[in-house]
Design a binder for these strands. Structure first.
Length: 339
DNA sequence: GATGCGTGGAA
DNA sequence: TTTCCAAGCAT
């Protein structure tokens, strides 16, 4: 049995004393829980995920229940968490698992990576944490820790850098405690070796850390300069009946807020708009990673007239019940509260 | 390789 | 206020 590297042992030891051991997906770390949590945690912080994970689990405790659900039920539970493709992929993958994998999360790298929404790092997390197979993970935390400790230059997502990081991550993964190590290295990055102001003072591997010794902690990992974020404006049409009900339509399966329910956007949803009383709501800003969205909205009072002229398919519902049954993006939630 | 995809929190 | 970006993946 080959010995662990000093790095690996130090991370494991740090984790036992300082790591988070009480996250809702850790006891027990069933394959389903690990898969679900790892998916929710993609580009999303632990504090945000906890509530979503628990709500999702209580509605869909296992693969069969998720596989049998409608996409709308899944999206409703995911609404607000962002990156909605994850929810669609999760649902699709559950159906595949139910049909082709006896209702279980597969336990081979090949089978896992063939599923939608599971890439190499998520597959590695499932294999190591849920199945105790010594597979490497390489998420943002691990990349940051390794780039600093081993002085790896270049953008962490460039092909050249990944070619160094993956073998390194694999060589550091222990055979015996791989499931603890996977949690440990991610926690270490999330809690101690943070992007800003890492706690080097308390770091057990400070003495072998390239970035600490070279005093370039803030410079590693190198960050790619971002293009300036473009501005965009979206215009929503809020159709409201006398009884207060509002009209929602499902967004297309591709693009932003895919498959979620929202007010008609863009062109007016009816040709006889002039016949109705309208009210312009105050615009507000909605920030995304790749856009600065100005959200504008016009409230159209429909009254009791014939509604047949609405061009879109959709549904009428009471404003306060919307979020309980349909998945709606944040800006729509905000508009509804303003009515 | 570059781009699209959400949201909330921190500085 | 603005900027940055957090347990990535798919196209």
């Amino acid at each position: 049995m080959p010995k662990n590297s000093p790095f690996t042992d130090a991370i494991l030891s740090w984790y036992d004393r300082n790591g988070r051991h009480d996250l809702p997906w850790q006891h027990p770390a069933s394959p389903y829980d690990v898969w679900l949590s790892e998916t929710m945690l993609q580009q999303t912080q632990v504090a945000t995920v906890i509530d979503y994970f628990q709500r999702f689990k209580s509605k869909f405790p296992d693969i069969p229940s998720l596989a049998q659900a409608s996409l709308d039920e899944v999206m409703q539970l995911w609404a607000g968490l962002g990156y909605y493709r994850r929810a669609k992929h999760l649902h699709e993958a559950a159906k595949i698992m139910a049909k082709k994998h006896s209702g279980r999360v597969p336990s081979s790298l090949e089978d896992l990576m063939a599923l939608p929404g599971i890439g190499q790092s998520t597959a590695g997390a499932i294999l190591s944490i849920a199945y105790q197979k010594p597979c490497a993970i390489l998420d943002g935390n691990v990349k940051r820790v390794l780039c600093r400790h081993y002085g790896i230059r270049g953008w962490p997502d460039s092909t050249l850098t990944l070619k160094q990081l993956w073998p390194l991550a694999e060589s550091l993964t222990p055979n015996k405690d791989c499931h603890r190590y996977a949690q440990a290295i991610m926690d270490f990055g999330a809690v101690l070796c943070t992007r800003n102001k890492p706690n080097c003072q308390a770091c057990p591997i400070q003495k072998s850390c390239y970035a600490f010794l070279q005093q370039c902690i803030e410079q590693l990992p190198e960050k790619k300069p971002r293009a300036k974020v473009p501005e965009k404006t979206l215009h929503f049409w809020i159709l409201q009946r006398d009884n207060g009900d509002i009209f929602l339509t499902q967004r297309p399966p591709l693009g932003i807020w895919a498959s979620l329910w929202a007010f008609p956007e863009g062109e007016p949803p009816m040709s006889n708009l002039a016949e109705y009383h309208k009210q312009t709501l105050s615009p507000f800003l909605h920030l995304l990673t790749h856009f600065r969205l100005t959200i504008k909205a016009t409230l159209v009072h429909i009254g009791k007239q014939n509604l047949a002229e609405i061009k879109l398919a959709g549904t009428w519902c009471a404003p306060h019940t919307v979020g309980k049954t349909l998945g709606v993006p944040k800006p729509i939630t905000k508009l509804i509260t303003q009515l």
